[in-house]
């Protein structure tokens, strides 16, 4: 359990960064804002509480590795990296603009703090299994964290990687599935049924946990559980709400990707400030 002060720190940080995501979305004309908000507490918990990192040394060999397999959540990732000081957050005013280092899917060679370039779905878990196996071979004690979308669990390659992680007993890896139940075309369960997700991962040799993906206590407890696990990789199925924090975006497929005008931006910021 988090003490109340720490919980408040994380919640305040999450609110502050949600507002920045809104500002950047407004400035750049459009972004994957729905998914950025559903993954948000997971990323905030990892970056402000869990990851062994040093923003002054983005290439530090012994840092933990983070892979945003759902690369379209890049706007949320970039806002966090800027806030931590990997780069001047003012640079984000050029997000998505011609020649900017910040495209909607982040490039590891252009954005300090990004360990893997993602955007094409179904790559992140395999990359993560490789990073974790690499650390094992090289005798390194860093951990690898991967955040997947639920939609990309329809990719065969996600399951190739899941099978390998189970087979090689990759325990220095923690995977999250941002289970917001909506992908671009609609509800995941109507497009391509994913459930029972926990049973699927368990059948592939994983230990599966199911949590509320917006609850910091549950996220951090799941991380601790995964670190203590010595036999199986751990996947955390995090039930989330697409567009979380902005009432008019929540659970709305239309907010998979969208732009904001001045009025929508103000409404979004007010909603975020009202949220608990």
């Amino acid at each position: 359990m988090l003490d109340s002060k720490e919980r408040k720190r994380l919640k305040d940080k999450a609110r502050e960064l949600r507002e920045r995501i809104v500002e950047v979305t407004f400035a750049c004309g459009g972004a994957h804002v729905g998914g950025a908000f559903s993954q948000h507490e997971i990323l905030v918990a990892l970056y402000y509480k869990v990851l062994r990192i040093d923003p002054k040394r983005p290439d530090w060999e012994d840092r933990d590795r983070f892979i945003l397999s759902k690369g379209h959540g890049g706007i949320g990732h970039a806002v966090i990296l800027g806030d931590l000081g990997y780069f001047d957050p003012a640079l984000l005013k050029d997000f998505n603009k011609t020649g900017s280092p910040f495209g909607m899917h982040l490039d590891r060679l252009k954005v300090p703090g990004v360990d893997f370039s993602t955007g094409s779905l179904g790559h992140g878990l395999g990359l993560g299994v490789g990073a974790a196996l690499g650390a094992r071979v090289a005798g390194k004690d860093w951990r690898t964290y991967v955040v997947l979308s639920d939609g990309e669990c329809a990719e065969g390659s996600t399951w190739e990687a899941a099978m390998a992680a189970g087979n090689f007993r990759v325990t220095n890896l923690t995977a999250f599935v941002d289970r917001n139940r909506l992908s671009l075309d609609g509800e995941t369960e109507k497009i391509m049924r994913l459930e029972p997700l926990e049973a699927k991962f368990e059948a592939f040799g994983w230990r599966a946990l199911r949590i509320d993906g917006h609850d910091f206590d549950q996220i951090l407890e799941a991380v601790e559980t995964s670190k203590a696990e010595t036999e199986r990789p751990v996947v955390v199925i995090a039930d989330t709400i697409k567009g979380k924090g902005v009432d008019y975006m929540e659970n709305q497929i239309a907010w998979h990707y969208g732009g904001l005008d001045e009025e929508m931006k103000e409404k979004a910021i007010q909603a975020i400030r009202r949220s608990k």
């Binding site: 395999g126 299994v129 490789g130 690499g134 390659s157 190739e160 990687a161």
Partner: peptide
């Protein structure tokens, strides 16, 4: 699983 082999190999390079 050839695609996964490439992804795993790419990930391994993080460890030098």
């Amino acid at each position: 699983a050839e695609a996964n082999m490439i992804a795993i190999a790419a990930g391994m390079t993080e460890a030098g």
